[in-house]
């Protein structure tokens, strides 16, 4: 079922929804952007549909709702580690189609990789329902179509904002009673079918080619361009890495929190072990690691889709103006060449 609602009517209904749900959406934080007099658009709890920034791509992804930047795991004393508490209330999040795919990638990492599900991820993820926001034409750094993440059916509600009104598809039957007396409409969300950017994905056909990809001079070009700041991984919806550490509350250090904080494979200490030895010492090597994880390793491990969902936030947020789409296209060009060389060497035509 779908409905046409004025924003003020939607706010009345939202107020009712807020009795049972915590609702997150991209919000504008005026003048809180990286540069002076720029805004920051990131997720937070909304009180009104007018809070929602729907006509701009958020700078940070909705992953921080499910995989918080800083999350307490345990409260510890000398004698025990007690699991941290969590708000039991279910969560509604306004997201884009690519974000829903991105969160599916997080699901793979946190719920499927290894022998057991991550309990901290699961306890938040199980409570989350999606409200799909239409993208219209999308934005100039998006390449969801190339990544196959422009469409999804995995949502509870879908919304199109139209001035003082909105159109809402209610797919999840549990929400239907709330809208029972509203004016119905004929609405299904439309998806972006073409981006301004097209990205070709590298087709690494053999172990030998993979080794040559590792040795490409392409990566060294990032030694001078990339600052290793990790703005890309922080903005990324599918980057999942974290570091665990303990923080003491008390003077004697005997009680405190064990917490999880986002980590980035771009940071130079990401692989450093006790004693100081680390791997991937150059920005270029770390850029290679991130790139291949996004478009090769993840698929090699789990099959199916690539980890990157083409949201383009990494490009939007890079202070050095490194385009991930351009990086992938450069890489694909190099891989074509390596594949052709490999084929020529074995006498097989490509």
């Amino acid at each position: 079922m779908a409905y046409r609602l004025s924003l003020s009517r939607m706010d009345e209904l939202l107020e009712k929804m807020r009795e049972s749900y915590t609702i997150y959406a991209p919000m504008r934080f005026e003048k809180r952007g990286r540069y002076s007099d720029t805004d920051l658009v990131r997720y937070d709890k909304i009180r009104s549909v007018r809070d929602i920034v729907y006509d701009e791509k958020s700078h940070f992804s909705p992953k921080e709702v499910i995989h918080p930047i800083t999350q307490a795991l345990f409260h510890f004393t000398e004698f025990e580690y007690r699991e941290s508490e969590v708000d039991e209330r279910p969560v509604l999040v306004f997201v884009r189609p690519c974000d829903i795919h991105g969160i599916q990638r997080l699901d793979t990492m946190f719920l499927e990789n290894g022998d057991a599900a991550d309990p901290y991820y699961k306890r938040l993820r199980d409570k989350v329902k999606f409200v799909l926001m239409e993208c219209g034409k999308g934005w100039d750094t998006c390449f969801c179509v190339s990544m196959g993440t422009n469409r999804t059916e995995d949502y509870s509600l879908a919304v199109r904002f139209a001035g003082e009104e909105l159109l809402l598809e209610v797919k999840d039957p549990s929400f239907r009673p709330l809208f029972a007396s509203e004016k119905t409409a004929d609405f299904r969300p439309e998806f972006v079918s073409a981006n301004r950017l097209t990205v070709r994905l590298p087709e690494i056909k053999s172990r030998d080619v993979l080794e040559k990809v590792h040795a490409l001079p392409l990566w060294e070009s990032y030694d001078t361009r990339c600052l290793s700041c990790g703005a890309c991984t922080a903005a990324c919806v599918s980057c999942s890495c974290f570091t665990t550490s303990d923080v003491a509350y008390s003077e004697n250090g005997r009680s405190g929190d064990r917490r999880r904080v986002w980590a980035s494979c771009l940071h130079k200490d990401f692989t450093v072990m006790a004693g100081g030895h680390g791997f991937r010492k150059t920005p270029g090597e770390r850029m290679r690691f991130r790139t291949l994880h996004k478009v090769y390793d993840f698929r090699a491990r789990f099959g199916g889709a690539d980890m990157c969902v083409g949201c383009g936030r990494c490009t939007d947020r890079c202070p050095q103006l490194i385009s991930f789409a351009a990086t992938l296209n450069r890489l694909s060009g190099e891989v074509d060449r390596l594949n052709a060389e490999a084929a020529a060497a074995t006498g097989v035509s490509v």
């Binding site: 974290f242 665990t244 980590a263 090699a300």
Partner: peptide
């Protein structure tokens, strides 16, 4: 192999090499 690890259960990402997790 010895690697930096935060979780040892295939979640934190620190010990990943290519598609392999050293902890797993």
């Amino acid at each position: 192999f010895e690697r930096n690890m935060s979780c040892a259960v295939g979640k934190c990402g620190h010990c990943k090499i290519n598609e392999t997790y050293v902890c797993l």
